[in-house]
Simulated scan of single mutants.
Amino acid sequence: MKTTLEKYKHQLIVLGNGFDLAQGLRTGYADYFKDKYGDNPSMELMDNAWDMVLFDRKLHNHSEWANVEQAIREQVTGYESIARVRNGLDNPNVLDTSNLLGSYIARRMASMIDEIHTVGFLQSSINHKDTVYLSFMRRELTLFEHSLYTYLKKIVGQSENDDPWQYTVSSDDLYESIAGMPAISGKSVLEKQHNTILTFNYTSPFQRRDEGYFPGLDSVRFIHGSLAQGDIIIGIDALNQGVQGQRELINNEDVIPFTKTFRTLQSTSNYDTFSDVFDSEPPDCIKFFGHSLSEADYSYFQSIFDHVDLYGGVTALMFLYRPDGRYDGSDLYLKVTKLINKYGDTLDNKDHGKNLLHKLILENRLSIKRVY
Rank of each mutant, 00 (worst) to 15 (best):
G225Y: 10
S226V: 14
L227G: 10
A228C: 13
A228Y: 11
A228V: 03
Q229D: 14
Q229E: 15
Q229H: 10
G230E: 14
D231Q: 15
D231H: 15
I232C: 09
I232G: 14
I232E: 03
I234T: 05
I234F: 13
I234C: 00
I234R: 03
I234Q: 00
G235P: 09
G235A: 06
G235Q: 02
I236H: 00
D237S: 15
D237N: 15
A238K: 13
L239R: 08
L239P: 00
N240A: 12
Q241A: 07
Q241D: 05
G242M: 11
G242A: 15
G242H: 09
V243K: 15
G245A: 04
G245V: 04
R247P: 02
R247N: 07
R247K: 14
E248A: 08
E248Y: 04
I250A: 08
N251T: 14
N251K: 13
N252H: 09
N252W: 03
N252G: 04
E253Y: 10
E253C: 03
E253M: 08
D254N: 15
D254Q: 12
V255G: 01
V255H: 01
I256N: 01
I256M: 08
P257H: 00
P257W: 00
P257M: 01
T259P: 02
T259K: 03
T259M: 02
T259E: 04
T259G: 08
K260N: 13
K260T: 13
K260D: 03
T261S: 09
T261W: 06
T261V: 05
F262V: 10
F262E: 03
F262N: 08
F262Y: 14
F262Q: 10
R263K: 14
T264Y: 09
T264R: 12
T264W: 00
L265D: 09
L265N: 04
L265E: 06
Q266A: 15
Q266S: 13
Q266V: 00
Q266I: 08
Q266W: 06
S267C: 04
S267R: 11
S269R: 07
N270I: 13
N270F: 10
N270A: 13
Y271Q: 11
Y271A: 06
D272K: 12
T273F: 07
T273H: 08
T273A: 07
F274K: 07
F274Q: 02
S275R: 06
S275H: 03
S275K: 09
D276N: 11
D276C: 04
V277D: 02
F278T: 13
F278G: 01
D279M: 06
S280A: 07
E281F: 05
E281N: 07
E281L: 11
E281C: 02
P282R: 02
P282F: 01
P282S: 14
P282E: 12
P283I: 13
